[in-house]
Computed example of a mutant assay.
Amino acid sequence: MTQALLKISVLLTKTHKSLLNVNGVACKNPNQVTADDFYFPGFDKCGNTSNKLGSAVNLVNVEKLPGLNTLGISMARIDYAPYGLNPPHIHPRASEILVVLEGSLYVGFVTTDNKLFTKVLNKGDSFVFPIGMVHFQYNYGTTNAVAFAGLSSQNPGTIRVANALFGSKPPISDDVLTKTFMVDKKTVNYIQTQFQ
């Protein structure tokens, strides 16, 4: 938190007996801040990729690391089993830069005029996903892959496209989904059962 915000937080805390919220997150009283508010252990540990997608994302945002509040950054470790996928998703509040540490990934994003940009990344390569673009990463190899991502928001948000369309509660009308994807109702219903 910047010095100016710390001073405002102290003033408000003393005057109104309440905490200042910045970006929807309460700022801690500066007298109660510790080194632990700026520390996160665990990026050395592999995520559990034994799921349908074969990937695991460990996002460290302001919820896990309070010291990120107002800094406009967050970070993630993504682990991929062989043929694991970080499925198409959007970060509504952040651009992302991805760096491959192990393995190889096929990555890409789609622009608002439906142009696809893709690249195969190997160890040490990086790729940028602009804010709000649908993007993905796929481990097409037979060995595990690991990547780190830096995001330009302390709370980037994540909307998985398939989950949003087929796993919403209450569900989106079959009529909407059948017309959108040009498939029959049986196919839509089957896909929806995969997200329950």
Rank of each mutant, 00 (worst) to 15 (best):
N31K: 14
K64H: 10
L68Y: 01
K52A: 15
L12R: 12
V25K: 11
S74H: 06
N139R: 08
C27W: 01
K17I: 03
S9I: 03
M75K: 04
S126Q: 08
T143H: 11
R93A: 06
G108P: 03
S126R: 07
K169Q: 14
I90L: 12
G54P: 03
F166A: 07
G132L: 04
F181T: 10
V176Q: 04
L98I: 12
H89D: 07
V188F: 00
K45P: 01
V25R: 10
T112W: 09
T143Y: 09
E96V: 11
N155L: 15
V62F: 02
L177I: 09
T142M: 11
V22R: 05
Y106D: 10
N163Y: 06
I97Y: 07
Q196Y: 11
F40L: 12
V62C: 08
V57Q: 08
N144W: 05
L11A: 15
Q196C: 11
T143W: 06
V100G: 00
S50C: 10
S9D: 06
N163P: 04
R77S: 04
E102C: 01
P41K: 15
N51H: 11
L121Y: 11
I78C: 05
K186V: 15
P41T: 14
G132I: 02
T118A: 07
I159S: 09
T178P: 04
G167W: 03
F181D: 07
G108H: 01
L177M: 08
T178C: 10
I97K: 07
K119Q: 15
N23A: 11
V120L: 14
F38H: 09
D175L: 11
D37H: 14
F38P: 04
I78D: 00
N122F: 12
L121M: 15
L98E: 04
Y39I: 13
D175P: 02
P171R: 10
T158H: 01
N58L: 15
Y140T: 13
T178I: 10
T143A: 14
S9N: 13
V176L: 13
A56H: 12
G42Q: 05
Y83S: 12
F129V: 10
D125H: 10
L11I: 13
V10F: 09
N48F: 05
S152Q: 08
D79R: 03
S95Q: 13
N86K: 04
N23W: 01
V176H: 08
T111R: 03
T142H: 12
G84N: 03
L85H: 04
Y106L: 13
Y106K: 11
T49R: 00
P82V: 05
E63H: 14
G141P: 02
T178Y: 08
N163R: 09
S153E: 02
D174R: 05
L5Y: 01
I97E: 08
V120Y: 11
K7T: 08
T2Q: 03
Y190A: 15
M133H: 13
G24L: 09
H16G: 07
L105K: 05
L71G: 01
N23R: 11
G157A: 09
